[in-house]
Nucleic acid binder design. Structure first.
Lengths: 344, 344
DNA sequence: ACCTCTCTCGTGAACGGTCACATCCAGTGG
DNA sequence: CCACTGGATGTGACCGTTCACGAGAGAGGT
C-alpha cells in the first residue's frame, strides 16, 4: 500500500488514466473545465497508484510553499512560561494544519542572538508567512516585514502588524473586581517592566477601571514592578510587606510572580488566603497545583495560536485584509488563593 | 539590503560574476574544482545581490528537503507533561538547526486519531526523516518505517528503531537508594499501566536493584498502578494508606502522580516530609514550586531532543548507521519532599 | 451548411536548482 | 612537437509542478 520510493508522478497517473498530465493537475487543484467522468477516472488512478503530489515541485512552480514559520523564544530557558508556549504551539499547529498548511519551527539557538531565528527563516526562504510569539520582541518582526513576509503576532504587539491577543484589559478588570468584591481595599499590583509593554498597560488600565467603578483610585505606592520571574515576585512582596499598612491582596500580572509572592508569604508565616489573597495572570497549568491553588486569569493560549494561524493563512490566501488585532476574551478562574478580606 | 521579491537566481549571480550558473552551484555546495579567484568573485556577487538559494528548487532536484518532521502528542490535553514536551521541542530544534536542517511540526488534530499526524507527514512527502516523541505510540512509527522514512524515537521504544532515552533504570535506582538511605523501609512504588512500557519496566528494574543492594526485596503489596495522571496518583495513595502498615515513602514514576499523592496526604493531614516522604520522576518545572518542593529524577528532556535530532540527521547524511539506543544519564534532584524516615 | 462559442483537453515553456557530461586550456613527459 | 593528463568551466537534460496558451469537438444560431 505504501509505495516506498513513491516516484509516481503526475505523468504516471496521467498515463494510467489515459489523459495528459495537465488534466491531472486540474483534478488535483480541482480547477474547472474537467469532465466529471474524466475526473473520477483520474481520481481512481491516483488512488490506485497511491499518488502524492510533491510539495517541493509545487512550491517551485507556484512560488509558495504552504508552509508558515513559527518563531518562539528559545524554550530551554523559558521555564515557567513553557505551558503557555506549548499551548500556543498546539493551537497554531491545529489552525495551520486544518488549512492544509504546515508549521515550520524556528527558535533562536541559545548561542546566538534572538534575531537569528528570524534571519534563518528569511534566508531559508521556505515559508509563506510567519507567526511570532509576542515575547520574541519587535525587531525580528520588523526584519520579516522588511523582507516582505506577512506576519501575525501572537500575544501582543505595538507594531502595525496583524495580531491576536488576549483581552488583557477586561481580564485584569474582572480579577480586580473579584478582589474588590471580596472586600479587599489595599490591593497590591505586581507588574513587570520587561517586554510586552502593551499587555502590561492594558492590564493596568483594567485595574484602574475596576478601582474607579468601586469609587477608588490607584495607589501608586501599592504598585511593584518585577520582571515576570518568580524571584522578582518575591522581591516585590518583600518590599510591600514592609509598608506600615501592608496590602491585604496581591494581583500579579503573571503566575510566576504570584508564585514568588506565595513563597515569601509562606516563609513569613502569613496564611493565604485567610490573611491575604493572591491572584495571578495566565492560568498556567501549575496554578491549580499550588498550595493554595492559585486564582488566575485564563488567557486561552491555544485559541490564540489557532486564531493567529487562521488569520495569517487568510491573509496569505488573499481572503483577509490584514486588519485590526483580534482580541480573545479572557476569563477569571477563582481558586483557593483568594478569599474575603480579613476583617481587622 | 533585503531584496523584497528576491527573484535573484543562480543565473543572476552567474551573470554578475561572469561565469556560468554551474560554477555558482559549485561554489554554493563548495564542491572542488573552482579556482579560488573565481570563487571569491562569485561569493562577492552573491553577497552584493543578496542571493538566497531556493530550498524548494533544491529539494526538487536533489529529492530531499533537509527538513525533518517532529511528531508530538496533541499538546492541548498534555497538560502537565507540557514542560517536558516543550523542552524536547527546544532541544530538537537546536540539534536540527545546528545542522542546517529545519523542523516541521506535526501533531494530531484533536478531532482525528493519533495516527493522523503521521499520515499527514507521509502524504505531504516533504520531510527527509522523522522524530517521534515516545508517547505517540508505536503504530505511527511503524507506518513511517513502512513508508521508508528514517525515524528516531525520543523517550523510549520497543521497536527496532534508533532512539534516545533517559537512563530510567539508574534514575530509579538512585532515587530508591536515596529513600533507603534515609531509613525508609516500606516504600510504595506508584507506577503506570499505560504507554511507554519499556520505561516503566526499566524504572521498576532500577527499584528492584536498589532494594536488592540493600538486602531487601520488592513487596508487591506496595506497588500501585496508575495512569500517569494526578487523579491516579491520589487513588494509588488512597489504596496504600488503608494498609495496616502504610508506607513511609512513595516513589512515583512521574511527577503528576506524585502531586496526586501529595494532595491526598495533605488532605489526610499527613505531613510531608516529616511523616512520609514523596519522590517523583521527570523533574518537571513545577516540581520545585510545590509544597513541599518535590524530590524528583531529572531526565534532561532538551538533551534528549537534541541528541535525537543529531542522530537522525547523522543517519540521513549516511554518516551514522542506525545503531543501539542512546541512553542519557538521569539525575536525582533532592528537594524538600524527602526526609529521614520518621522513627516509630 | 457555415461560423462562432464554449467546454474539454493537450502542448510547450517556465520555476531554480542539480547532475552527468563535454569542452577548453595549460602543463607535462617522451 | 605531440599526445596525454587533469583542473577549470560550460552545456544540456531533468526533477515534478503550474501557467499561458492553443487545438479539437460539439452545440447553437442564422
Amino acid at each position: 500500500m505504501n509505495q516506498k520510493d513513491s516516484s509516481i508522478t503526475m505523468r504516471t497517473v496521467a498515463q494510467r488514466a489515459g489523459v495528459s498530465y495537465q488534466t491531472v493537475s486540474r483534478v488535483i487543484n480541482d480547477a474547472a473545465g474537467v469532465a466529471p467522468e474524466t475526473r473520477t477516472r483520474v481520481l481512481a488512478a491516483m488512488r490506485e497508484l497511491g499518488y502524492r503530489p510533491s510539495l517541493a515541485a509545487r512550491s517551485l512552480a507556484r512560488n509558495r510553499s504552504e508552509i508558515v514559520g513559527l518563531v518562539l523564544p528559545s524554550s530551554v530557558e523559558a521555564g515557567f512560561a513553557s505551558a503557555h508556549l506549548l499551548q500556543v504551539v498546539g493551537g497554531v499547529d491545529r489552525g495551520v494544519s486544518d488549512n492544509d498548511y504546515t508549521t515550520l519551527l524556528s527558535s533562536p539557538k541559545e548561542s546566538e542572538t534572538e534575531l537569528s531565528a528570524f534571519r534563518r527563516l528569511i534566508r531559508q526562504r521556505t515559508v509563506d508567512g510567519v507567526l511570532v510569539e509576542a515575547s520574541m520582541g519587535e525587531e525580528g518582526v520588523k526584519l520579516l516585514v522588511e523582507a516582505g513576509y506577512p506576519v501575525t503576532v501572537i500575544g501582543h504587539t505595538a507594531l502595525d502588524v496583524p495580531s491576536v491577543c488576549p483581552d488583557d484589559e477586561s481580564g485584569a478588570y474582572v480579577a480586580m473586581q473579584h478582589l474588590l468584591a471580596l472586600g479587599h481595599r489595599r490591593i497590591a499590583i505586581v507588574t513587570s517592566g520587561e517586554g510586552q509593554g502593551l499587555a502590561v498597560r492594558a492590564r493596568m488600565a483594567g485595574c484602574e477601571r475596576a478601582l474607579a467603578d468601586a469609587g477608588l483610585t490607584l495607589d501608586q505606592g501599592l504598585v511593584a514592578t518585577g520582571n515576570w520571574s518568580i524571584a522578582s515576585g518575591r522581591a516585590a512582596a518583600e518590599g510591600l510587606l514592609d509598608r506600615e499598612q501592608p496590602p491585604t491582596a496581591y494581583f500579579c500580572f503573571n503566575d510566576s510572580m504570584a508564585i514568588g509572592v506565595l513563597q515569601l508569604l509562606r516563609e513569613r508565616g502569613i496564611d493565604v488566603p485567610r490573611e491575604v489573597s493572591v491572584a495571578g495572570f495566565d492560568d498556567t497549568p501549575p496554578a491549580p497545583l499550588l498550595t493554595p491553588p492559585l486564582t488566575s486569569v485564563r488567557v486561552f493560549s491555544a485559541e490564540q495560536g489557532e486564531r493567529a494561524a487562521r488569520t495569517l493563512i487568510g491573509i496569505l490566501r488573499g481572503m483577509t485584509r490584514p486588519g485590526a488585532p483580534v482580541v480573545l476574551p479572557s476569563q477569571l478562574v477563582v481558586r483557593g488563593s483568594t478569599a474575603p478580606a480579613h476583617p481587622r
